[in-house]
């Protein structure tokens, strides 16, 4: 993976604001990152950190209040023409967290999976649509005859597969997976993770993987960005992040990862993150690339300290 490669998706100084005047709330404050083609980019943070908001803002579900998003060289944020909008809608898809809540209970699997086609491929015949549904279902390991059933007839893992089939049928290149396995049993998690990895290999998909659980992200992500209260605090290649976590918040997240080992679990000390340790009154923090590919947010004094830690 060369560093000079043109980014596939580029987020520049993204701001997302909800509410008006007195109730204004800035959920995302000036976030920038690039995602390369074919990689899995992880976004990790606690509830309320704005990770889901970023994913949704990229997909144009929420409007930006500042900044830009570029996809494959084209600006896709703000006002764009209808033709581009349709193309982007087809090329970018989403997998949702809770498979129990994200499928229409009153529609058959056939309709749930093919709904997107009604927008982008209006001209196709009924037979063609059925064929594509059958293909998408078998690609995620379900039987084509499931198309005539309702969501309630399926288990959690199967429902998540339906959610993935619904994204795949659009022939996307970029998928936002928002906590796709948090609501699943451990044994089912492994199946969904394997399926996502296999589809990535086969189709060259690019993922934005949103989660609060670093143990899962280590397994699936190439690079990870850590977000805290709407700001990125650290971004790095996965193994580098696990070896040299710099920002205290990243360290706190890492210390909370459950380890399936009776001995290491008990020794591990829990690091709590206290934002008041940063003194940003005079010296404002800046987003800095300390070593190639490893970014961290800090003021000059902290960056000096981080540099020493890296050596």
């Amino acid at each position: 993976m060369s560093e000079q490669q043109e980014p596939f998706l580029s987020v520049r100084d993204m701001h997302v604001t909800f509410g008006e005047r007195r109730h204004r709330f800035e959920a995302v404050c000036g976030v920038s990152f690039d995602i390369r083609k074919g990689e899995t980019f992880g976004l990790v943070g606690e509830s309320g950190s704005g990770k889901t908001t970023i994913g949704r803002a990229i997909l144009r579900i929420y409007p930006l209040s500042g900044g830009e998003v570029y996809f494959d060289g084209q600006r896709i944020s703000g006002k764009i023409d209808k033709e581009l909008d349709r193309r982007v809608t087809q090329r970018m898809q989403m997998i949702f967290q809770d498979p129990m809540a994200s499928l229409n209970e009153r529609a058959k699997v056939d309709y749930i999976v093919s709904e997107g086609l009604y927008n982008v491929a209006r001209g196709i015949s009924k037979e063609e649509r059925e064929r594509r549904v059958a293909n998408a279902l078998s690609e995620v390991g379900l039987l084509p005859e499931f198309a005539s059933r309702f969501p309630h007839e399926f288990s959690g893992g199967q429902r998540q597969r339906i959610g993935i089939a619904r994204a795949l049928i659009m022939q996307p290149e970029f998928i936002v997976a928002d906590e796709p396995i948090s609501a699943l049993d451990v044994s089912i998690r492994a199946q969904v993770l394997n399926l996502m990895a296999e589809l990535q290999k086969k189709r060259g998909l690019t993922y934005l993987f949103i989660s609060h659980d670093l143990s899962v992200m280590r397994f699936i992500c190439d690079r990870i960005a850590v977000i805290h209260l709407g700001r990125l605090v650290e971004l790095s290649e996965t193994e580098e992040l696990f070896r040299h976590p710099l920002h205290p918040y990243t360290q706190a997240l890492l210390s909370a990862v459950p380890q399936p080992s009776p001995d290491c679990a008990r020794r591990g000390e829990l690091v709590a993150y206290d934002p008041s340790i940063h003194d940003y009154s005079v010296d404002q923090p800046v987003w800095t690339e300390l070593v190639p590919g490893h970014f961290v947010l800090g003021n000059q004094k902290e960056l000096e300290k981080y540099r020493k830690e890296l050596k």
């Binding site: 451990v186 044994s187 998690r189 492994a190 993770l193 397994f219 399936p260």
Partner: peptide, 17 residues
């Protein structure tokens, strides 16, 4: 159950299911 834990997985390998 233990083998399917993502904590034991290595990137690029399939997890046990």
């Amino acid at each position: 159950l233990l083998s399917s834990l993502p904590q034991l997985g290595k990137k690029g390998e399939d997890l046990y299911t």
